[in-house]
Amino acid sequence: MNNAGLPGTGIGGLFYLLLALCMPVVEVVRTVRGDTEPGRWRQVLTQFALACAILVSLVGTAAVYLRLVDAPSPFGLTGTALVLAPVVLAALLLCLVVVVLRVWARLLGPEPELRTPVRVG
């Protein structure tokens, strides 16, 4: 779930986690460029702290799950490597989706005309 009303597996959540973890760096860049806004650092630090806490909870959950469930050892992976493998794979898959979208956007022609909505009433 990454928006109310839309289901999700956590891949979407991972995307927002990465975005929130990047916020301090992005904000430093914005500040250096002179793009400042009152209260934005507070927003950045709040989201960053949330993301860190979620990350810790995810690692903890995975560790507990691996102990609880007699997890198989695919490709000889065990322990931390087994926990990290799906996360890294999901992140790579996510990056692939984003890159494909960007390449697609570049290949497209000019913006199509936005159809005027039908008005009733």
Binding site: L6, V98, W104, A105
Partner: peptide, 19 residues
Amino acid sequence: KGILRLPFLSTVVGVALFD
């Protein structure tokens, strides 16, 4: 087609749809 040109929005929508 229109939102593909908006980097963040298209990524958010793409990820949401995929997810």
